[in-house]
Design a protein around this nucleic acid. Structure first.
Lengths: 370, 370
DNA sequence: CCTGTTGCCGAAACCGGTTTCGGAGCCGAA
DNA sequence: TTCGGCTCCGAAACCGGTTTCGGCAACAGG
């Protein structure tokens, strides 16, 4: 058991040669046994597996890569552009992916890009250099050049989000549309009839979906759709404050506002405070994301939270399946966001306290904290 | 120029064999020419380099890895634990590293861990699997088991931050101590004599350094050190609010507070507001980090900003140098933070407006926005 | 002219795996 | 007994690079 190669200190990997020597088999046989070829007897297969376990053998991914063409790495290209700087859940997201990847002995390789064009170029570079075997594409846009490229290159990928042309796409997504609809229904259940909506960036695919959800909620509640009550383009608190101000300064302002993003909702808070309105009493707000700041705002924000860590893990697993050639129809899933009822919503003002109207399906009212 | 290997579509890498065939040289010669061996004539060296450029040859990192033992990947293990979730600059940091890495044809491999013990285990796993050639260690602690491990394994690493036992350590760091000192001097220059300090998590190495900077500033200004004015453990706005409240409720409260973190300062804002104090007039605040929220707070926060993207890039370059065996003494650098003077600091209240006292070296007063 | 360097490149081993091919043994059937 | 087929493994090529070794030519010195 002496070190065969003197790489300075205690650094020594057990290779497939060590294993084969120990077992009295050729390395080809050992390799086939480990990789489940069916021309290996069950007895030697277990013998090899046991020895590999005992000796702590871990195949060198780089060596496997050169013959198989698989780098055993997942790729993630982050947009590090100026307007995308705020990513509250990035660490959780990475944790989900990384954990799922290392379970399979794969690694997570990340790169950054400054804009859409740079993103595409970076993806192309990683593919050309054979650095990764597939991509996770976060923040999908309605029309997304990254998807076109990967489709063209025939490189596996999965979307965090959906997209316009779903041809060849696998995805995991959170149902923002259901959340927005439930928010409207919940507010209607509390007695609100004028419910505004502040949407996010319409370039991203989630925006039309959440808008549809808001409209579906209105329709389901039997409420009219007043276009004046719908604003969009709010992804920062500042923008949220501006859009909120527009709504509140309307001749007939809403008594409740649904926001597509928590950060926008925090801006609406400020717009309301500036007008002497108390959130949760004079104005109800329900949003979406579940950022930590939402829990410590005054009042705490009622919001639909998403489990970004779980999303990352699911995406990694979907990508594995995709790389291994699974059927696309099994690789498309949309899961609901989780309502966290807090203090920013309540009955509309100027309403006699009484039995709340019962309107169709009762909105979900789970309680919980992050 | 026909595809020699039919990997589905247009996917085709030019290998060293293609190059050698084209040039009429053996691949060994081509390899040596490309890698700067001195037994290759200058003429063929340029001929090979030109052909490689023309044909777009990029060596396959995995193939190089198995012989050289270098994975050509930088490692970064992120702490994804519950209290470390807020990382405002992570994207910028990753961008800095990733960009510097890809310039050298290297990649950035990231993994996550939930606590200190998990971090060490994850690092050990990455080393054992030969996935990376070196590590960037963010958020160094005074006593840091990651450093002990890597020192023991003789694996190259660089610190973002400094540490207690600097033996074998290279680092890039921002001088938080100078920033804190300059903050005190700036406030003293404005006329303040009772200046409080709210520090961060004392487990991290930056905390004692910033505290020393605060004390150095007091000493340099000829101000007494009142232990009552020093608090620590504030890394969230909530904690900042609590520590700020303690200071403001003192019998003889400070007229200015220096915070080790912007987020804590935002909490101090709330503590001050709750007491009817106007920031920038009744209470001056200067902090450190340069988070986006600081710019949009009311009033905008005067703070010492750090360029996290540049730090990431520098760390990557230092790590390259370390891996290539450069002298440690050339791989230790501390750069200053950049003051962004905004509206949260001013002369102390109850002071006759008049010529400001001139106290020794005038504090730096650069103006600028992020 | 012969010899000893030196410059420069070819040949081949090597790294740690995977995959193809062929054949040795064992079995049952004719 | 012989033949065919099946099971299971060894041998060797292969992947795309790097590195060692040896030797051919040109050149300088004696």
């Amino acid at each position: 058991m002496a070190l065969s190669k003197g790489q300075s200190k205690g650094r020594y990997r057990v290779t497939i040669n060590d294993l084969s020597r120990e077992l009295g088999l050729t390395k080809g046989t050992v390799s086939r046994a480990l990789n489940g070829y069916d021309d290996i007897s069950e007895s030697t297969r277990t013998r090899v597996a046991r020895a590999a376990e005992r000796m702590g053998y871990r195949p060198l991914a780089q060596a496997q890569a050169i013959r198989t063409g698989m780098a055993r790495a997942l790729g993630l290209v982050l947009n590090a552009g100026p307007d995308n700087t705020h990513k509250p859940f990035l660490t959780d997201f990475l944790d989900g992916i990384s954990r799922a990847a290392s379970e399979e002995g794969w690694s997570l390789s990340i790169a950054t890009a400054l804009d859409e064009q740079d993103e595409v170029a970076t993806i192309a570079r990683l593919v050309a250099e054979h650095k990764v075997d597939g991509f996770i594409l976060p923040r999908t846009r309605v029309s997304d050049p990254r998807i076109d490229l990967l489709r063209d290159l025939e490189v596996p990928f999965v979307l965090y989000g959906r997209t316009g042309d779903t041809e060849g796409c696998a995805w995991h997504d959170i149902s923002g549309e259901d959340a927005m609809r439930d928010a409207v229904l919940r507010l209607h259940g509390l007695g609100h009839v004028r419910i505004g909506f502040v949407n996010g960036d319409s370039g991203f695919n989630y925006a039309p979906l959440r808008r549809d959800g808001y409209l579906a909620g209105l329709a389901e509640a039997g409420l009219p759709h007043d276009p004046d009550l719908v604003r969009s383009g709010a992804i920062t608190p500042q923008q949220g404050m501006a859009r909120g101000a527009e709504l509140l300064d309307l001749p007939n302002p809403p008594t409740a506002i649904v926001c597509a993003l928590d950060r926008a909702a925090l801006g609406v808070y400020r717009a309301a405070e500036a007008r002497g309105l108390r959130i949760g009493r004079d104005l109800s707000v329900i949003a979406y994301d579940g950022i930590p700041e939402a829990a410590t705002a005054t009042p705490p924000l009622t919001t639909f939270a998403v489990d970004t860590r779980a999303a990352g893990a699911r995406l990694a697993k979907l990508l594995f399946a995709r790389i291994r050639g699974a059927d696309l129809n099994h690789l498309r899933e949309v899961v609901p966001a989780h309502l966290i009822a807090r203090g920013s919503d309540g009955p509309p003002p100027n309403t006699e306290p009484g039995p709340a109207r019962n309107t169709g399906p009762t909105p979900p009212t789970q309680k919980g904290e992050t």
